[in-house]
């Protein structure tokens, strides 16, 4: 609110008072042509009023109009001494490794909770068109635009692929989760039928087939239990 009022006042003053004055002063200040442009300003001469130093009458004159607002605006929006937030630009490898690290920690915890409750846990890395090869023409159209969107010099597809690869590798190397991980990224890469409705989600047929593969895991485990 203060800034709004001040800005309004300033614009009025600038246009009505300063602008004509500056025109007048500019006319009087037409400088002569010299053979050089070296000028030395004397900054040692100034006069001090209310802890402000003025090095020329003109700046003092301008400041008189601003003076009423000095107290009002002082430290209204403290920005200078506030620390800036870190702007982390990240390469695909950095994004991949950091997100994988966080996901891995979460999955380990879920696994631990499942173990305590004697539940069998499996992580299925969901199918994604940005990473899997598009199997139909429609698939190609769906993923094409976003895959090639550039972020900091890398395509979105590069980020996705790097992340998926990193996550797969981390999971495979993990002692606890290695055997509880199934990669579903490319389960539809061999069919010629449409399974995806968009790069991430499946239609009813795709969901049914996905369920079939999941049930396979469950049934295999059931067999092991019987033995």
């Amino acid at each position: 609110m203060k800034f709004f009022l001040f800005n309004l006042y300033l614009k009025v003053v600038l246009l009505i008072i300063f602008f004509p004055l500056s025109i007048i002063l500019n006319i009087f200040n037409l400088k002569k042509t010299n053979n050089n442009n070296f000028r030395k300003k004397n900054y040692k001469k100034y006069f001090k009023i209310f802890k402000f130093r003025f090095y020329s009458p003109l700046s003092f004159f301008i400041f008189i109009f601003l003076f009423p607002f000095v107290r009002l605006l002082k430290f209204s929006k403290l920005k200078l001494f506030k620390p800036k937030r870190i702007n982390i630009r990240q390469t695909p490898k950095q994004v991949a490794s950091l997100v994988s690290y966080r996901v891995l920690n979460n999955l380990r915890l879920i696994n631990k909770i499942s173990d305590i409750n004697k539940t069998n846990y499996t992580f299925f890395l969901q199918p994604l068109l940005y990473v899997a090869k598009p199997s139909t023409d429609i698939d190609k159209k769906l993923m094409q635009y976003i895959s090639h969107q550039m972020y900091d010099g890398f395509t979105y597809q590069t980020y996705c692929k790097e992340f998926y690869n990193f996550l797969k590798e981390s999971l495979r190397q993990d002692e606890e989760l290695g055997s509880k991980f199934k990669d579903f990224t490319k389960i539809f890469s061999n069919t010629n039928d449409q399974r995806f409705v968009d790069p991430v989600h499946l239609g009813s047929i795709g969901q049914y087939e996905c369920a079939k593969l999941i049930s396979q895991t469950i049934k295999d485990n059931e067999k092991k239990l019987k033995l």
């Binding site: 997100v99 879920i110 499942s114 409750n117 992580f123 969901q126 994604l128």
Partner: peptide, 30 residues
């Protein structure tokens, strides 16, 4: 997902947990 499991596992007493995920963590971070 972790928090949900934590909340409901003792109520529901599942035999299997099927976790189909991966993309959203990346998407929201990115």
């Amino acid at each position: 997902d972790l928090n949900l499991i934590n909340m409901y596992i003792s109520l529901l007493k599942p035999n299997y947990i099927i976790h189909l995920a991966g993309y959203n963590d990346f998407f929201y971070f990115f």
